[in-house]
């Protein structure tokens, strides 16, 4: 693909030498244009993405503060992180959030995608309803949920009392705050997963399912033996990207709880933010981001690999 030749059937009867010279000129012009078009984005990515990425690793090995230059301290930050209870709790909380949000959101989004894959009235409308939370800003969404979870006059307590349950302090209650934010995570992330599932479902041949039904398979059997194996490769991809996404939750926490009450919602990204821009421990925060990068990078890398294999086969 990198070497596209201009070979054509030799019908023009042009002299070989000038033709070759011209071809060489065209190739050179193409290569020159290629670099011209590529370099702005390439240079930009080096300065604003690759360099910061490498700096994160370097900074994590120093005791840099926001002001002044840091000293090289080797793995000092990492050693300190291992003994840091707040960091450990933040990681555990992030894992808890992930373990709760990802499977629930995946199951629900798959159910919705399967339902939307049927011929039913109002499909486009339903698809829009489920997808809208994905495109709205997390800050606006967080503001709305902050109001829903308002203990005095919010919708949340109204729903609880409708079902005859006791009122809750929601985000002000350390035991409830994180689960309450998990609900928001599921609600906002559902649409994106649904779209990926829906695309996979629609790529499964209708003929195959019809053939199975004609052979006497029940709808359940057709689903179990044709549809389910057909979407199997997507599960892994959705799983991995969802985990990576839930590791990165920040805006929601910042607006609703600020990591509180009593650190109950202090997840990894929030801990990083606090260490970097409030305590100004840039080196220490960088070590946290490197650990996050390793987690997320491995997961996303695996996800991309699964997609490539799917396309390749």
């Amino acid at each position: 693909m990198t070497t596209q030749t201009l070979e054509r059937p030799a019908g023009g009867g042009v002299d070989r030498l000038p033709a070759r010279r011209r071809r060489g000129g065209v190739e050179r012009a193409k290569a020159r244009a290629g670099w011209l078009l590529l370099s702005p984005a390439l240079v930009h990515s080096v300065i604003f993405v690759a360099l910061p990425g490498l700096m994160a690793v370097y900074l994590s090995l120093t005791n840099a503060r926001v002001a002044g230059r840091g000293k090289w301290i080797g793995l000092g930050n990492y050693v300190e992180l291992f003994g840091d209870a707040q960091f450990r709790d933040a990681v555990l909380r992030t894992l808890l959030y992930t373990v709760a949000v990802v499977p629930v959101a995946m199951a629900l989004s798959l159910a919705v995608a399967i339902a939307l894959n049927q011929k039913i009235p109002g499909r486009a409308l339903f698809r829009t309803l489920f997808y809208v939370p994905v495109v709205t800003s997390t800050v606006a969404v967080a503001s709305v949920w902050l109001w829903i979870y308002n203990p005095a006059a919010g919708l949340g307590n109204q729903v609880l009392s409708f079902f005859g349950m006791a009122r809750s302090g929601w985000l002000t209650d350390p035991d409830v705050a994180l689960p309450a934010l998990m609900v928001v995570g599921v609600w906002q992330g559902l649409g994106a997963k649904m779209i990926i599932y829906l695309a996979a479902l629609q790529s499964i041949s209708k003929d195959l399912i019809e053939a199975a039904t004609l052979d006497g398979a029940s709808r359940w059997q057709a689903f179990r033996h044709v549809t389910w194996p057909g979407i199997a490769p997507v599960h892994f991809f959705v799983l991995v990207t969802s985990i990576a996404g839930s590791f990165q939750v920040f805006d929601l926490i910042y607006v609703t709880t600020g990591g509180g009450p009593a650190h109950a919602t202090n997840v990894l990204t929030f801990d990083i933010f606090t260490n970097a821009f409030e305590r100004l421990h840039i080196g220490y925060a960088s070590a946290e981001t490197v650990i996050m990068l390793v987690f997320v990078g491995i997961l996303i890398g695996l996800g991309r690999l699964s997609v490539r294999n799917r396309e390749g086969s």
Partner: peptide
């Protein structure tokens, strides 16, 4: 016909894996 197009593409793919949260401080 950019020389090393494959490598440059892989470079971009690696960059797009990096979460923005990692880049904020640097």
């Amino acid at each position: 016909p950019v020389r090393g197009a494959r490598g440059i593409l892989n470079y971009f793919i690696i960059l797009l894996i990096v979460p923005f949260q990692v880049l904020i401080v640097p």
